[in-house]
Design a protein around this nucleic acid. Structure first.
Ligand SMILES: [Mn+2]
Ligand SMILES: [Mn+2]
Ligand SMILES: [Mn+2]
Ligand SMILES: [Mn+2]
Lengths: 218, 218
DNA sequence: TAAAATTGTTAGGTTAGTCTAATTGTTATA
DNA sequence: TATAACAATTAGACTAACCTAACAATTTTA
């Protein structure tokens, strides 16, 4: 049985090696920074995870998940996203509130609970942030979606997910009347700073490039 | 913020000081045994809990919860029983399966989650084992119920709760077609070992004194 | 009431997960 | 290619939660 902490390291590694299309490795400092611990701490844990055959790793080398490690990590991601969906769909949580609580709930050990929760929710495919929920077999539909910042000026698209899951960002998005499935039209763009004018259900608003890079569209 | 372990000590103390009508104190060995740790370990924790003003305790003396400690403990009990109810009512768990998972879920920190869960469940008053669920104000309806073993021969009663929450006991009870609200009639009794013959919906069965002592009735 | 039994504490160790400071290995750059 | 910058590891410490073994206090009981 994995500890709370070990699970978090595996989940972090899955995140770091899934972010960018063909990135499959992570570094010690990168991992430590992501988890908010010191590199020395991460090194200790990496030795343990290697010992348990959950990662591939050599001293001074890059880190990648083993098949077992990846499966564990995907299982945790599945739980995380199912719980987020539960909180959002059944308990009236807003999409900026679910993540924090799901960070705790994802560590509950009970295969039956996960399956029953999945069933209770009607086998959802995406969580409140538009992220894919891995299925019971541990299959994760990996899609590298385009961001709003990549949409051509004048073109239209539809928001399908968000990249940033912080409460501050999510609240800002909601405040703009923007949500999953909202149609967006890119009206104009500033070459200077990449900010853009977008149209959401009739209203035109101005958003920064940083903002646009965190809205995933189709 | 209390740790997982500190919460378990407080919960154990609440249990031990609530069991019997006017018992309000517990001993170190008793506590350690209940938690499955060594007395030396419990002593360490007792010092810490005293330091945090969660218990009243003097070296070589008896232990009791302070008001703050009791409130924390009741809050955990509330979460435990709400989660058991959720698993039973919404996720098709059986009453012998809920406790184990609730032992984990009771440590999730989120006031909003507890309140929303309570609302989602329709503000239940009892859990699947017939135990009272403390309300949002932390009020716990304390009732010292009679056990089946105390019912006079020939008299009838109704099962309202169980005292033992182990899977083995609960499965046995279910197997006997016995559950919350089932009417029971005490047919006869053996003076020798306290075993009794009881009638449940027409069928007569024989149960041990130990069994009867764990069925709470009204 | 003194000895025995029971109950509880202390001392000293272990492991997991964290830290800082010092050091070593790798990569980039002048 | 030598050196500077960066990335990663090691050594040594700390805390929380546990342990065993030894000891001390309290309670029981003969
Ligand atoms: Mn999340
Ligand atoms: Mn999400
Ligand atoms: Mn329970
Ligand atoms: Mn219960």
């Amino acid at each position: 049985m994995l500890s709370f902490t070990e699970e978090n390291y595996l989940k972090a590694l899955l995140h770091l090696t899934m972010e960018i299309e063909d990135k499959v490795e992570a570094g010690t400092n990168e991992l430590a920074f992501y988890l908010g611990v010191k590199p020395a701490t991460a090194t200790d844990m990496l030795k343990k995870l290697k010992e348990k055959k959950l990662i591939q790793y050599e001293k001074y080398g890059k880190i990648s998940l083993s098949d077992t490690g990846r499966n564990k990590a995907v299982e945790i991601l599945r739980k995380h996203r199912l719980w987020e969906t539960f909180l959002y769909e059944k308990l009236e949580f807003t999409w900026d509130e679910v993540h924090e609580v799901a960070e705790q709930l994802e560590h509950i050990h009970s295969p039956k609970l996960v399956d029953k929760l999945d069933k209770f929710l009607g086998y959802p495919e995406v969580d409140p942030h538009g992220d894919c929920i891995p299925n019971a077999k541990g299959e994760l539909k990996q899609s590298f979606k385009k961001t709003l910042s990549e949409v051509e000026t004048g073109a239209s698209c539809k928001m399908v997910a968000v990249k940033d899951n912080t409460a501050a960002f999510l609240q800002y998005v909601s405040q703009l009347n923007l949500g999953i499935d909202t149609p967006i039209k890119v009206v104009s763009r500033q070459a200077y700073d990449g900010s853009m004018e977008i149209m959401i259900s009739g209203a035109t608003i101005n958003v920064s490039q940083k903002f646009a890079e965190n809205i995933l569209i189709v």
